[in-house]
Design a protein around this nucleic acid. Structure first.
Lengths: 335, 335
DNA sequence: CTGTTAGCGCGTTCAT
DNA sequence: ATGAACGCGCTAACAG
């Protein structure tokens, strides 16, 4: 590969001048600049980004630490980050942590070692991880999680309100024993929908029955098992709110296997609004989340912070959108 | 941040020794190694990966260039790459090209500028893109696409056979006017399933009616529009094979909107086998593809090639698995 | 086995 | 406005 010195020689200038031209430094003789550009083209010169990064102590890489890209909601978020990153000449490094704090810590360590420009992280909850980044002066944006002390920017979805609306809808539809299946209790992403669920019940003068609240393991299997447990309990619930898209799939698989009639025997509202929600049998009511926008906003905040590290941290909360379909309306024709 | 010299000073050794210890170089006095490790711990020293990369003219980054990570099939592939990459201490840089050759070229340029260790690419078809990588000596693995001249390693799914089996199944189920909706004609990923479809028809002594073959634009919308066009045509098809997961969603949306009875009025076999396939109304028959494994194998090949650039290129072909459900069996109870 | 030296390619002083 | 010199942090030669 040609270096900046090769270009300099060919253009009859110094390497410093080549550098200036390439970085759009203002005061350079147009004549020389022309020669430089010509030499660059002739040699197919491409600046070495690694050398530049070493010199500037900063790469143009943004780490995105999430649990798993195969979760469609997270893939959408990643895509939102990437589109913004591209516009601002950053590349993204994908880090799937599977909610494992140790793996998350490894990725954070890598981000530090690689001198990444910033990190967007859906933290599984160990505060020390984010603190390490902050301590190193690396710009961070937390997603899906409020950070205690608000030391960093954060972008989240108002799942409290989303769950509250969904639960209110189920109550209004006439369901009386409404269950809630959410994620592992140690994740804050699990607690927030639960809060909304409880809030709606209380607003309607209902009691919260602990028997009807289940904390599933992540992914489909958690939804499947939690639903199975609920069906075995007595008395059975007559409706269920499921707090993530992945859990929702497991719940529906369980209901299919058990031959439960939806929405007659059991009303269902899921989370996330995948394209197949209306193709399901019956069409599935969901709490739609702006996952792409979440990533996009997070990336914007990160880029802003890289540009101005002293800006006070902000927290952005995005709203959900309740999509009512047949699965939560007992009066409508069943599938 | 502490540098290798800080560690050297504190451990009373030279920087070279520190480097040797850190890189597991064989012959170093255990005594000195101990001092180095102690100093590393005390200073919280973390090697600067950028400096190392500059020195070695190679980073530990692998670029994964695909069309769009929000396609679940591609997300699974990316995950397959990442798991293998993690095991071998690489990080992955995600590049969504949206099938745009220009954007793809940009990402390739970035991979070169960033001195990435290798590239895994689902190329949209411009040969020059891959050639550029090869010319620069960057290890490449092509996925979902055979490369002319077999100059690089490739991993693909035998969609020819998958489509052939699916079509044969539709014929056997009694359908007589079987249509095929595939991707844009300029993508080789579109042509291969088509080939299998035609092959199955010919084997059964049927003619291939060009009216029944549609090349959709990518994503759901392409499936929707192609299906709508087929429904307007006369005589209508009585079955359809859809060659990608994203197109399949669009097709099903169209059928739902048009109130077409599946599988009675129209039999459907889709591609990819998402968890929701059995939750659909009616449960969807699909050609399941080993997408995770595809990425995993591609990553393994890439790592091998990085280790031994002279190894002759290989092409690996993975098999599909036909999942027969209600959508392609007119005899079974409709949804 | 260890230390000294050199240089990966670039951006940025400091002079001119 | 331009060029010379230096150093970002590390590892690979080479000596010893």
């Amino acid at each position: 590969m040609a270096t900046i010195y090769d270009v300099a020689r060919r253009a009859q200038v110094s390497a410093a001048t080549v550098s200036r031209v390439l970085n759009g430094h203002p005061s350079v003789d147009p004549e020389l600049a022309g020669r430089v550009h010509a030499a660059v083209a002739e040699l197919h010169y491409r600046p070495n980004a690694v050398a530049r990064s070493l010199r500037k102590s900063r790469t143009s890489l943004i780490a995105v630490i999430i649990s798993d890209v195969t979760d469609p909601a997270l893939a959408a978020t990643v895509r939102g980050v990437e589109d913004m990153a591209r516009d601002t000449a950053y590349s993204i490094v994908l880090c799937d942590s599977d909610e494992d704090p140790d793996r998350e810590a490894e990725y954070v360590a890598a981000a530090l070692a690689e001198q990444m420009a910033g990190v967007i992280i859906a933290s599984s909850g160990r505060d020390a991880t984010i603190e390490q980044l902050v301590a190193a002066g690396t710009p961070v944006v937390a997603i899906d999680r409020a950070v205690p002390g608000a030391t960093v920017d954060a972008v989240l979805v108002d799942t409290v309100r989303g769950a509250e609306q969904a639960t209110a809808h189920l109550i209004e539809a006439g369901y009386t024993r409404i269950a809630c299946i959410t994620g592992p209790p140690h994740l804050s992403t699990a607690g927030r929908p639960l809060l909304g669920y409880e809030r709606a019940l209380r607003s309607a003068g209902r009691l919260v029955d602990p028997q009807l609240v289940r904390f599933g393991t992540p992914r489909e299997i958690g939804g499947y098992e939690s639903m199975a447990a609920l069906l075995r309990s007595a008395p059975r619930p007559d409706a269920v709110l499921v707090a993530t898209g992945m859990l929702t799939i497991g719940v529906l698989e369980c209901l299919l296997d058990q031959g439960v009639d939806v929405p007659g025997e059991l009303g269902v509202v899921g989370f996330d609004d995948p394209p197949w929600a209306r193709l399901a049998n019956p069409p599935l009511s969901t709490v739609a989340q702006p996952r792409y926008e979440l990533g996009n906003v997070a990336a914007r905040l990160l880029v802003e912070r890289i540009g101005d590290p002293s800006r006070p941290p902000v927290t952005v909360s995005l709203r959900t959108d309740l999509q009512i379909r047949a699965s939560s309306q007992p009066g409508s024709p069943a599938g």
